[in-house]
Simulated assay, not measured.
Amino acid sequence: MKKDIKIPKVENVTLAVACTINKLNQEEWSVHLINRNEYDIENTLVSSTGYGEQDGEQQKTSTLRHFLETVPARSSILIEPITADIFHLNNEFWVSYYVDGRIYDKKFIFLPDTIKEENLIYIKELDTKGVLHS
């Protein structure tokens, strides 16, 4: 039965949208997966999409999928660049990975207009400021 299936809880794995300044002194935004565990996570799949509404019109981005063979313990890895033009949308990232043969998955959603200057915090794993998904 469905109630007998034990779904493990995702802990110490999160996403961050970080901002850096490039050589032309322009902001560059990117999405990073952060593994704060003491162990590697394996065969990680990340699916990303944006959706929402602007001026009464529905908008949706393409769905991107990324495969990461191993994300080492206590590390971060770049998932994809992201443009500020879509920060007004729900930016959804579905992350699935394996630890000791068990699958874990979690949906992370950055709500509209949460990725902005006043929400930036220092993220030590990336050594830059960004919005950390809680």
Rank of each mutant, 00 (worst) to 15 (best):
M1Y: 14
K2Y: 13
K3T: 11
K3E: 12
D4N: 15
I5V: 15
K6F: 13
K6I: 15
I7Q: 02
P8V: 09
K9I: 15
V10H: 00
E11H: 14
E11Q: 15
V13K: 10
T14M: 02
T14N: 01
L15G: 00
A16L: 04
A16R: 04
V17T: 06
C19H: 07
C19F: 04
T20R: 10
N22Y: 02
N22Q: 08
N22I: 15
K23I: 15
K23P: 06
Q26V: 13
E28W: 03
W29M: 11
W29V: 06
W29G: 05
S30T: 11
S30G: 10
V31D: 02
V31F: 01
V31M: 05
V31H: 03
V31G: 01
V31A: 00
H32S: 13
L33K: 08
L33S: 07
R36L: 09
R36D: 01
R36F: 01
E38A: 12
E38P: 05
Y39L: 09
D40C: 06
I41K: 12
I41A: 03
T44S: 02
T44R: 05
L45C: 12
V46C: 02
V46R: 04
G50I: 07
G50C: 04
E53G: 07
D55I: 11
E57C: 09
E57D: 09
E57K: 11
Q58D: 10
K60R: 12
K60P: 03
K60A: 10
K60N: 07
T61Q: 05
T61D: 00
S62G: 07
T63C: 14
T63E: 12
L68S: 05
E69P: 07
E69D: 13
T70K: 14
T70L: 10
T70R: 09
P72C: 03
A73T: 01
R74W: 11
S75C: 06
S76W: 02
S76L: 04
I77N: 04
I77T: 14
L78D: 03
L78G: 03
L78E: 04
L78Q: 07
P81C: 06
I82F: 01
I82W: 02
I82Y: 00
T83H: 10
D85T: 07
F87C: 00
L89F: 05
L89D: 03
N90I: 06
E92M: 06
F93I: 11
W94M: 08
V95P: 02
V95K: 03
S96G: 09
Y97C: 09
Y98M: 13
V99W: 02
D100S: 12
G101Q: 09
I103S: 09
Y104W: 09
D105P: 01
D105I: 00
K106Y: 02
K107S: 08
K107H: 04
F108A: 07
F110L: 06
F110A: 06
L111Q: 11
P112S: 04
P112A: 00
D113F: 05
D113G: 04
T114H: 05
K116C: 12
E117A: 12
E118T: 10
L120R: 08
Y122M: 08
E125C: 01
D127L: 13
T128E: 02
T128V: 14
K129Q: 13
V131M: 05
V131A: 04
H133L: 08
S134G: 12
S134C: 07
